[in-house]
Structures are given as C-alpha cells and as structure tokens.
C-alpha cells in the first residue's frame, strides 16, 4: 500500500488533515459503516490491525505525528510487541449542530510486553471512535454485554483509530492554538503590572 499522506492532496501549503472528533465520526466512520463512498477517501482500512504503533507509518494515513485508519472493533488489541490497554471511561462525541451523541471515543495506551519486566507503558496513545448507533445496536442484540462494551467480534462493526505518540516537547509547537507555558507566565506577570498601577506616590 502506498504511504498515504494528506499533503498529497494538492492543497496549498498549510492545509492538513486535522479532523475534529465529530468529523471523524460523521464524515468518515459513518460513511464507511454505511458503505458509502468516502470523499476524500484518504483513510485506509487496516482491517484487524495488529501493528505495533511505530509500524503504522506508511500504512495508516499520517499527518504530523498522527496516524488514522479504519479497523474492526475487536476485543483487546495485541500486537507482536505489546498490547493496547484501555484507559478510563469512554467519552461521547457530540454533534456541534444538534448536541446529539454521534459516536463514542475510547482511549488506549500502548504497553510493551516484555518477557522479563512485564508490561511497560509507552507514550503511544490511541483514540478509537465508534458509532453511537452501533452501541445501540449491540444493546438491542445482547443487552447484557453492552455495558462492558464487549460485543462479540463483529466484522460489520467499524471503528476509526487515531494513533499518536505523545511528545511533550513537540506538543506546544503542534498545537498553535495554545499558549506556551512561558507565555502563560508572562501573562501572569502582566497581571502583576496591573495590580501595581493604582499605586502612586502621593
């Protein structure tokens, strides 16, 4: 498979594949599950993926240090060198227009499976998006298993994954819409300026 990169799409400099969670669910996952053509068809299908996260480059759609791909919903993703461990609870993905829950977002952390030392945490994070409808469908078919989020392996159930390696140093640069810690400090200093303003020598 050719390495999909969003800068191949002939957009002017500065345009990148930075989908919101909602877009991932509504534009991409929903169309995929409904067997509708995705436009643009940029996200590859890695089926039952069992790649280690660092192997995704060249296989998944890469943008910056993020990779996107479709997969089937499976119960526990084990790779050659480790496994994806679920983190905490699921978050709903809301439609900005209707505030409806359109999907669910689940978090995973990649652990290396080391024979001697046991599981080792890494900085690799995965967001797994699934359709809200799917959850509902599962609920009707087997209501007992719904709460645990463990439907039987069902190949018609698509998920969309976003994988990235958390990088503290780069985080600041990549998210331009945030202030750096240093800038935050300077803003605080400005506050102190304001505080001292009313004080004048009589």
């Amino acid at each position: 498979m050719a390495a999909p990169h969003s800068h191949n799409f002939n957009l002017p400099p500065g345009f990148r594949f930075y989908p919101t969670d909602e877009e991932l669910v509504v534009h991409f996952l929903h169309r995929k599950a409904a067997l509708l053509p995705c436009h643009p068809d940029v996200i590859p299908d890695l089926n039952l993926f069992t790649y280690d996260p660092w192997e995704l480059d060249g296989k998944a759609l890469g943008e910056g240090n993020r990779w996107y791909f479709y997969s089937r919903k499976i119960e526990g993703r084990v790779t050659d060198n480790g496994f994806w461990n679920p983190l905490g609870r699921d978050d709903p993905v809301l439609s900005t227009a209707t505030s409806e829950v359109v999907g669910m977002k689940k978090y995973f952390l990649f652990h290396l499976q080391d024979a001697d030392a046991g599981p080792l945490k890494t900085n690799w994070i995965m967001h797994e998006f699934r359709l809200a409808d799917a959850a509902a469908a599962v609920a009707t078919s087997s209501s007992s298993s719904r709460r645990r989020g463990r439907p039987k392996r069902d190949y018609s159930k698509w998920v969309l994954c976003r994988v990235y390696e958390r990088d503290e140093e780069k985080e600041e640069e990549e998210d331009g819409a945030e202030l750096s810690c240093l800038d935050e400090v300077f803003l605080t200093l400005d506050d102190l300026d304001e505080i001292s303003l009313p004080n004048r020598i009589q």
């Binding site: 969003s6 957009l11 400099p13 345009f15 990148r16 594949f17 930075y18 877009e23 534009h27 991409f28």
Partner: peptide, 11 residues
C-alpha cells in the same frame, strides 16, 4: 476544503 482538512500552517 475537503472534510477533515483545515488550514493549520506551521510557523
């Protein structure tokens, strides 16, 4: 701009 793409230029 196609869905999912935004103007997010580097400095």
């Amino acid at each position: 701009v196609p869905p999912g793409f935004r103007f997010h230029p580097t400095e």
